[in-house]
């Protein structure tokens, strides 16, 4: 490409000018903003950012704060459950939809519509459904099963699973769609071959199709994971972090310290930890995806 069109400085000048917003965003906001936050996470900023460096003090305090530990634990539980369940659920639903069924579009539309809704709407609906006095629990009580106890939103031990139900409802349709696209990408000859060899369908899925879909699985996992780290709106709407701090997550911790607790240093340190967590996921993936070969 570059070889056929010799590059001179002004030749592409208009293109360069047109790309200024992109260049500014990349350099100023993404690189500059990140560097700024990381740098200031080593300062003792309180109400306003200050350049008094205190080394790793903020991080030591962060990891000594129970609220942060709770939010990390919640994120881990939610994250692992969300990844496993939404992958399993998404794949099973996609496999069902891939059986050349009728009304496939109708089913797909129904399974995907929650994804169009915001986390705020999702959280509020499930808050209502899980309401102990009027929601699912009370309906089951009225049906006669008096001892039925499912009240996640007011029970600190299981509140994160109440959020998980809502998260799965909202997000599993997307996974199903991605998986369905992956299944459609599989050569039909493979199915024919496995049928000729008399291999049962479930074995074909587990030993042939799923290994073939590895790139789809990895991409989907990265998408789910980057969504999980951002988990914020859903918590705010559904539980407000409560009861107490039982359903806190890192993103909420950051927001509260930065914009309400007037403790910027803590907010910066916590957000840097979030960045670190994302890098641990994204860098190996980017290495696998783009490393070695030239970009496509």
């Amino acid at each position: 490409m570059a070889a056929t069109r010799p590059i001179r400085l002004f030749r592409n000048l208009t293109a360069k000018i047109a790309a200024i917003p992109m260049i500014l965003t990349a350099l100023v906001v993404f690189v500059g903003g990140t560097a700024w936050t990381v740098t200031y996470s080593f300062t003792s900023s309180k109400l306003l950012p200050r350049t008094k460096f205190v080394g790793l003090d903020q991080y030591e305090r962060l990891w000594a704060t129970p609220r942060w530990l709770v939010s990390i634990e919640n994120l881990l539980i939610y994250g692992v459950c969300m990844m496993v369940l939404s992958l399993v659920l998404g794949f099973l639903l996609a496999a069902l939809l891939d059986q050349k069924i009728r009304y496939e579009n109708t089913f797909r539309t129904i399974l995907l519509y929650p994804f169009a809704l915001s986390f705020i709407v999702t959280g509020l609906v499930w808050q209502w459904l899980l309401n102990p006095d009027f929601g699912i629990q009370s309906v089951i009580h009225r049906l006669g099963w008096e001892s039925f106890d499912f009240n996640p939103l007011y029970n600190a031990d299981i509140v994160i699973f109440g959020v998980l139900i809502a998260g799965l409802w909202q997000g599993s349709g997307l996974v199903m769609c991605l998986m369905l696209a992956g299944l459609r990408g599989i050569d039909q000859e493979i199915w024919k071959a496995s049928r000729v060899d008399g291999i049962p369908a479930w074995k074909t899925y587990i030993f042939i199709i799923i290994p073939m879909m590895r790139p789809v699985f990895i991409t989907t996992l990265v998408i789910i994971a980057s969504g999980i780290v951002r988990l914020y709106d859903l918590i705010v709407a559904q539980t407000g972090g409560g009861p107490g701090i039982a359903s806190d997550v890192p993103a909420k911790y950051v927001y509260d310290y930065m914009f309400q607790g007037q403790n910027l240093g803590q907010g910066f340190a916590a957000s840097t930890m979030m960045l670190l967590a994302v890098l641990v996921v994204v860098i190996p993936w980017a290495y696998l995806e783009f490393g070695g070969k030239k970009r496509v």
């Binding site: 490409m1 570059a2 590059i7 592409n12 208009t14 293109a15 360069k16 790309a19 992109m22 260049i23 965003t25 990349a26 350099l27 906001v29 993404f30 690189v31 500059g32 903003g33 990140t34 700024w36 936050t37 990381v38 950012p49 980057s226 780290v229 951002r230 890192p250 993103a251 950051v254 927001y255 930065m258 910027l264 907010g267 910066f268 916590a270 957000s271 840097t272 979030m274 960045l275 994302v278 994204v282 980017a286 970009r295």
Partner: peptide
């Protein structure tokens, strides 16, 4: 109109999509 450095900015931009918003909230 690929110009020199375009791919680099683009890569930064795509990586930026993965940075948690919380990191860039305050600088903005």
């Amino acid at each position: 109109w690929r110009f020199k450095g375009a791919d680099m900015f683009f890569t930064i931009l795509i990586f930026g999509a993965f940075i948690p918003y919380q990191v860039m909230l305050y600088p903005l």
